[in-house]
Design a protein around this nucleic acid. Structure first.
Lengths: 183, 183
DNA sequence: CTAATGGTAGAACGATCGTTGTACATGTGA
DNA sequence: TCACATGTACAACGATCGTTCTACCATTAG
């Protein structure tokens, strides 16, 4: 399961998260990936491909990270914000890797595609969780709003710290859901 | 008023916003700034200084952009989200320039400082506007939450479009304020 | 007329970039 | 034992990077 390509992708993810997309050269990425330059290029034949590989790894890693949690009540939805908070606190607090990649390469269609796919997936997680606890509510609107809170939390954490951002996001989400009669 | 240095800063802002911080080299920045390389380096003696100069320009430009609007009622606060929406629709929809800079140079203290200063200023705008229409409310909490919505709108616009992000942000802000008895 | 100011054009520098090449080591299945 | 897949180490390529250089032009105040 943990084959070479996956291990490289995980290390690339870590590297881009901590150094940004502009700074690290391929030599630095190879150091972080802990493989030879030849092997690195074998699996990711260009620096662009390394960026995309890191994003694809992050997509599955993050969706896995936010899975689980309480199965009933409003906590089933709020779990996402708690997990995001834990990620920002313990893994990396450098903003959303997808947004950062999109900002670094605004005109790259492949990066835009993988970023949109990821955000759609997170939005779908919110939609599924809202539907599970309140099938009659306006699920489309709520998923959109919850994703917006999620994005706000990610950005705010960079500026004001992970904990403060999490408290604010939880408060916003609770207010939103309770306003729809969900609790 | 529109001296050479200001004009350069405005053009650098535009350039970084449309191309990101990684891609454009100094030669490209000079093209966009529409001055000679010598003059560019005279006012901004390194590429890092050009980044900071663009951010400082953006700080004043954005604070100016969101000023004004209705003087009473909830619209006094919601004006900010309308103006942000108009910016994302008509000026640039490439995320927050400060967050993007922070993402590109995560370990640069000067860039971190100017980014934090900017977000503090926007938060203060929210605080002032909330206090003006509702002096008795929990201004600190509301300013923090409104800034979080503001950040969410900026990120969401990149993925789902400026208009959808604005509608969601307005809905969130209205729900938040009405929940505090403000309308 | 002169000197200073603030600008332009463009060549050139060393360093670093992304990428590819050659040469060699290791383990594994036939 | 042999072929082969998969890995390493590291030199080297041309291109591009940020930065500095020399040389020249236009305006204006003394």
């Amino acid at each position: 399961m943990d084959d070479t390509k996956t291990r490289i992708a995980r290390n690339l993810d870590t590297q881009f998260a901590s150094m940004g997309f502009a700074a690290p050269g391929v030599d630095s990425l190879r150091d972080g990936a802990d493989v030879s330059l030849r092997t690195l290029y074998k699996y990711y034949p260009s620096r662009d491909a390394m960026v995309v590989g890191a994003l694809e790894h992050r997509n599955t890693a993050y969706l896995d990270w936010i899975s689980g949690g309480p199965e009933t009540g409003i906590e089933h939805v709020l779990h996402i914000f708690n997990q995001l908070g834990a990620w920002l606190e313990n893994v990396a607090n450098t903003g959303c890797l997808f947004i950062n990649a999109l900002a670094a390469y605004p005109n790259d269609p492949e990066i835009r595609a993988v970023a949109e796919r990821h955000k759609d997936a997170v939005r779908q997680v919110f939609a599924d969780r809202v539907e599970k606890i309140s099938p009659a509510s306006d699920i489309t609107m709520l998923a959109e709003a919850l994703l917006s809170i999620h994005e706000g939390q990610t950005n705010m954490a960079m500026i004001r710290g992970a904990e403060a951002a999490q408290i604010t996001a939880l408060h916003l989400a609770q207010t939103l859901l309770q306003n729809e009669g969900i609790q």
